[in-house]
């Protein structure tokens, strides 16, 4: 490998990404993450259910919406690593979803995190008795979340969201 090609930023960037465990995404493979995720959803549902006078339709819709918006922000909107140790910005402009398992697709963590919004959607539409408005809101939130998780969307940026601006002259 020539020195000039080693200077190419992409090569150096992938070296820096793999040089050590990415603590920002590695915890998603830890024990108990799935059950925590499940408990969190139950807590969201519980929180919305205890609001006085709330209908089950509304509480289910708000639960789906909260989960989808929350996980979208967490996995697809925020980029980079919050604690820079030695990666020197190697994960700048890369979302948490893209950081999971070094970008390998269809890993167990990804499968779990993709299935959860689908199951939640089916449950909530069932319990909202297919009220058209609630159905529509749930569907849009779920589908947007699912599209962002598609392998085909890996490091693809639509509508200028998370766009990496090339400052190279």
């Amino acid at each position: 490998m020539t020195l000039a090609s080693m200077y190419k930023t992409d090569y150096v960037q992938s070296l820096d990404q793999q040089s050590q465990t990415n603590l920002n995404s590695a915890w998603l493979n830890d024990k108990g993450v799935w059950i925590t995720n499940f408990i969190l959803i139950c807590m969201i549902k519980f929180f919305f259910s205890i609001i006085p006078g709330i209908t089950p339709e509304l509480s289910w819709t708000l639960t789906t919406l909260t989960y989808n918006v929350g996980s979208y922000i967490m996995f697809h909107a925020v980029t980079g690593v919050p604690f820079e140790l030695f990666s020197q910005g190697a994960f700048d402009y890369i979302t948490l979803w893209e950081q999971i398992d070094e970008g390998v697709q269809f890993t167990a963590t990804r499968k779990y995190l993709t299935t959860v919004p689908i199951v939640l959607f089916l449950l909530s539409t069932h319990y909202t008795h297919y009220a058209p408005f609630a159905f529509f809101v749930n569907l849009v939130a779920t589908v947007i979340n699912l599209i962002a998780k598609l392998p085909a969307m890996h490091q693809v940026r639509l509508f200028d969201i998370n766009q990496k601006i090339d400052s190279r002259g």
Partner: peptide, 18 residues
């Protein structure tokens, strides 16, 4: 369709986008 997609996703094989 959504249910089938979930099942299909679950059965897909690991691969690296590189």
């Amino acid at each position: 369709g959504l249910a089938i997609y979930a099942v299909k996703y679950m059965l897909s094989k690991k691969y690296r986008i590189d």
